[in-house]
């Protein structure tokens, strides 16, 4: 790990404190430091040592919560709701369109690493179903036209 990254991580921990209760907010900030939305193993190992936690205590939190990833993802993360309400509002069509627009399958990342396509459980946008989130922003009432426009706006 380079010095700059270490300083950044230390600054984040200093802001919160080394107690275990701050692990989730700290991990949120640390994941943001990475362009590809993940927490590399060397970073979580360093974090564990610095916060005086077991490596497993850090890793189990990373692997438990949907927000965290231990493997690289795209710069833009598209999460398509696959819960019941979106299913009965024909989200299979949404998924097909996204897969063809991005030329990848669900669960994959585009070659240029610009997009990852993931399933998501319900995020409370059922009144505008079918819905998806990109980097946390919700888009609903998706159809062919709106999907195309939204994806275009995130292209490099």
């Amino acid at each position: 790990m380079d010095e700059l990254l270490i300083t950044k991580i230390q600054d984040i921990i200093k802001k919160y404190g080394k107690d275990r209760e701050y692990l989730i907010p700290i991990l949120k900030k640390i994941q943001k430091l990475n362009r590809y939305n993940y927490i590399p193993q060397e970073v979580s190992q360093y974090l564990a040592k610095y916060m005086q936690l077991k490596e497993s205590e850090v890793y189990e939190v990373i692997s438990f919560y949907a927000e965290f990833s231990e493997t690289p993802r795209g710069e833009n993360i598209i999460k398509v709701c696959d819960s019941t309400v979106c299913r009965v509002n024909n989200n299979t069509e949404t998924i097909k369109l996204l897969e063809s627009l991005l030329s990848i399958k669900m669960g994959e990342t585009t070659q240029d690493k610009n997009f990852s396509l993931e399933y998501s459980p319900c995020f409370g946008a059922c009144d505008i179903s079918p819905a998806m989130r990109i980097n946390g922003k919700t888009y609903g009432n998706l159809d062919k036209k709106s999907l195309k426009e939204i994806i275009e706006s995130y292209r490099r």
């Binding site: 819960s83 019941t84 309400v85 459980p121 319900c122 409370g124 946008a125 059922c126 009144d127």
Partner: peptide, 11 residues
């Protein structure tokens, strides 16, 4: 932590 599918009252 409103996560029950179909629920958005708390939102």
């Amino acid at each position: 932590d409103e996560g029950e599918p179909g629920t958005f009252k708390d939102r």
